[in-house]
Amino acid sequence: MTAIPIGKRSKKAPASDKTKAERKLGLMLCAPAVVAMLLVTVYPILYAVALSVQKVDLRFPEESGFVGLANYKAVLTSDLWWQGVFNTSLIAVVSVSIELVLGMGLALVMHRAIFGRGVVRTAVLIPYGVVTVVAAFAWFFAFDPSSGFVNNLPFVPDDKAWFGGHNSSLSVIIMAEVWKTTPFMGLLLLAGLATIDEGLYEAARVDGATAWQRFWRITLPLLKPALLVALLFRTLDAFRVFDSIFVMTRGAQDTESVSILGYNQLISRLNLGLGSAVSVLIFVLVLLIAFVFVRILGTSNPASQGERS
């Protein structure tokens, strides 16, 4: 924490006219942003909560009314919801783990690259610049038996229907996610690496530490804040996975994520009550994940550490 919150300082000492005026100006300058944030985030969230306790179906306008927690009960007692939560968690855990390992490798390469540093960094970042839907289509067409090259590779059966089975579909979805977001992970870790003092490595080398020891004893502990930020961001992102699944399987072969379930209720069925209950539950799960990361895994506040790194 480098900045002291304004509120705390004002309690300690009575502010002068000048600081008062500055604070007023500061508040006025913030106000438009705060209002915009309230309009675009708080209002929809509250609206979703309000919808989730009502029976609202655009196709049956005459049937609306307050139903209390019935929508939540319908969601939480549904096998589909729990299958969705399981799939989403599986995708999140597996893809983020792979991304972490690969991203760390990329970050080290980008950090240590002696020549062509700019080219290496740009090349690594390309997948992250591709729109998710486009990336998902690219992977879909690559693995689709009628258009893809994957089935022409050695050791792959020519007529393997990748999206015809649960495990193979999930694998391709996870691969696409990993390909797409590893650069982001790498970038965040690279920012963390840049803050580590070179002197520490030199000292360790003088003391005869091996490369592995230097990585394990210096890099990892000092990288922890950046690591936590990267993991938090990626896990939250991965938990809302939608595009890849929507493009590749539409949720067939039991590959539905919770977001796909929300889409089905909201957009396909126009059942705004039930769909909003799904959305609110996803929101609660995301909050829980953030809470776990911030409170249990991190002894320090990862957000502020992230700012510094």
Partner: peptide, 14 residues
């Protein structure tokens, strides 16, 4: 072979 993922377009290509 791709019957479980077949659409109008995969049928045509097949």
């Amino acid at each position: 072979s791709n019957i479980t993922t077949s659409t109008e377009d995969t049928a045509r290509l097949g």
